[in-house]
């Protein structure tokens, strides 16, 4: 019972962003996805959430082929995501930002606001409730984006570089939050991060992408010991020297 990509290929014009990518996100666990800039990480998330149709291969959720579903259909099927660019609804206040997901999932407005208040409480962010989303500081913006994705308890949550631009301390807090999301709510997470240390500290299983292909996957030791990973990150020369 997982959310998986099966042999997925995505091309933009002649450029192959993903080639035969297979990966699985396990329920209740945090899976890491790392790789250099342009490796295809965001394209993976887009494909896993219905924002990008795979040209070949399939997206499968709990045995069901999702490849033809629109993005909002993925969310309703329990696959939530955040964006590298935050993308809050700037003109709405924080509670309404969260309530939007509630109404998107078919709740009435009062129920959606109730669900929103509960998630804010769970994250300890009640104080932000009535603030306009547009003026939020960067880290709060990131946390509200995660809160918005948690409405209605999705089965999976895909986080695209949630810690980008955060300080060491803020990133560590975020890591704690992601662990809680997986253990307390039982949500299967995919964590994309450039901060490899952060990923290795949170994730039981890590997938490494380079040039649109999966070049390695496994636990912390496997990733640290992998020559292919070192080569992708530091270039062939250093890998040989090491």
């Amino acid at each position: 019972m997982t959310l998986t990509l099966e042999q997925v290929g995505v091309a933009f014009g002649g450029f192959r962003a993903l080639t035969e990518v297979s990966l699985a996100i396990a329920p209740g666990q945090v899976t890491g996805l790392i790789g250099p800039n342009g490796a295809g990480k965001t394209t993976c998330v887009n494909t896993l959430t219905g924002f990008q149709r795979p040209d070949t291969g399939r997206v499968v959720l709990e045995g069901r082929d999702m490849s033809r579903l629109p993005a909002h259909g993925f969310r309703r099927a329990g696959v939530a995501r955040t964006f590298q660019a935050g993308r809050l609804f700037g003109g709405l206040d924080v509670l309404d930002n969260l309530a939007c997901t509630g109404v998107g999932l078919g709740m009435r407005r009062a129920a959606a606001e109730q669900a929103a208040a509960e998630v804010l409480h769970w994250m300890g962010l009640e104080a932000l409730e009535s603030r306009p989303a547009a003026g939020l500081p960067y880290t709060d913006e990131r946390r509200i984006a995660i809160a918005r994705a948690l409405i209605g308890n999705p089965d999976y949550l895909l986080l695209d570089e949630p810690a980008a631009g955060m300080s060491e301390k803020e990133a560590a807090d975020l890591a704690g939050l992601i662990r809680r999301i997986a253990t307390e709510k039982g949500i299967g997470c995919l964590l994309i991060e450039h901060n490899v240390g952060l990923v290795l500290s949170v994730c039981a299983h890590v997938v490494v992408l380079d040039g649109g292909r999966v070049i390695e996957q496994g636990d912390r030791a496997t990733i640290l010991g992998s020559a292919a990973v070192r080569e992708a990150y530091f270039g062939a020369d250093q890998a040989e020297a090491a």
């Binding site: 924002f51 629109p70 909002h72 939530a80 998107g104």
Partner: peptide, 8 residues
Amino acid sequence: VAASASGI
């Protein structure tokens, strides 16, 4: 885009 990610 964010709206469709919210199930809308």
